[in-house]
Design a protein around this nucleic acid. Structure first.
Lengths: 160, 160
DNA sequence: GCTGAAAGTCGCCAGGT
DNA sequence: ACCTGGCGACTTTCAGC
């Protein structure tokens, strides 16, 4: 399945504006791009429908919710080839923000946010331990996050 | 500097709704919570001002922009203690989505999105190579992303 | 695919409790 | 901190090109 996207300059401009501030209104986008608001609305709906725009998120300060510890955990699993059970079990844990199937060690890289190290240990004892195929884990603690964004590089000129 | 946040149940509800859909309007939030829109507006503005809400993002499908490769790169640097030069240089690269200062190997964990492996190599040759203090790098390729969200766990009942 | 107009809502700011 | 009320602006739909 290889869906083809046909995005033009206006689409890129919309994506760029939306990526900077998802709460920008259609009228402002329209003014910025010199078009009618109804045209923008039409395009945005198509971008959503084509799953180019996946969702709109508010980025919340983790410290405000007392979630001061960020960790990356490498997990080796005994899954068979193409078996995604362990990955899905990991993804089901709310504190787990990301689960990536990585090359090399038939394993996963997982990003986890907890209040502190005690909460991390508790999470691993309670949730991770219940996942059958996990062989071993290696945890890396983040001391400080310098940058954390989901923003993609959007083509700036020309292109179709 | 340890800012104190005083979030109550209504704030958590607002954050929960905003986190699910940042483009929800004040009137809908107000209806959901049984309050007047003006009260919601007031609270949202305070949450923004207190940096509880950091920003509103549109999550864009990387495949739609041809960015099919996700990689994590461990970088060892010769920075002195508390010297953040290398981290900032890494953060300045647009393809770099995340830079974390990690414990253990006086190094950084960096998350990078590129079109393909050729683009990654090119990026490392052109951008990374210009950062003086980098000693070595170890790259981990993501085969498949099972989950990728920034959503935090928000307290669901009681609490102040 | 875009424009322009019309109807329905909403954002936002008073003022008051 | 919250509600009510009101005006200007926005959203959304639809006809027409």
């Amino acid at each position: 399945m290889n869906i083809e996207y046909h995005l033009d300059r206006v689409d890129y401009d919309i994506l760029r504006l939306m990526q900077e501030n998802a709460r920008i209104n259609n009228a402002d986008i329209a003014r910025e791009l010199g078009m009618a608001p109804s045209a923008i609305l039409e395009r945005v709906k198509k971008l959503e429908q084509k799953a180019v725009i996946l969702q709109y998120n508010a980025k919340i300060n983790p410290a405000a919710l007392g979630q001061k510890l960020l960790s990356f955990i490498f997990i080796r699993a005994a899954d068979g080839i193409g078996c995604a059970t362990t990955g899905q079990a990991l993804a089901a844990i709310p504190e787990v923000q990301e689960v990536h199937d990585i090359a090399g060690d038939d394993g996963y890289l997982v990003k986890v946010r907890t209040a502190d190290s005690a909460a991390l240990v508790e999470l691993m004892r309670s949730s991770f331990a219940k996942i059958p195929n996990i062989i071993s884990t290696r945890t890396t603690i983040v001391l400080e996050t310098v940058k954390e964004e989901q923003k993609l590089v959007i083509p700036s000129e020309q292109q179709e």
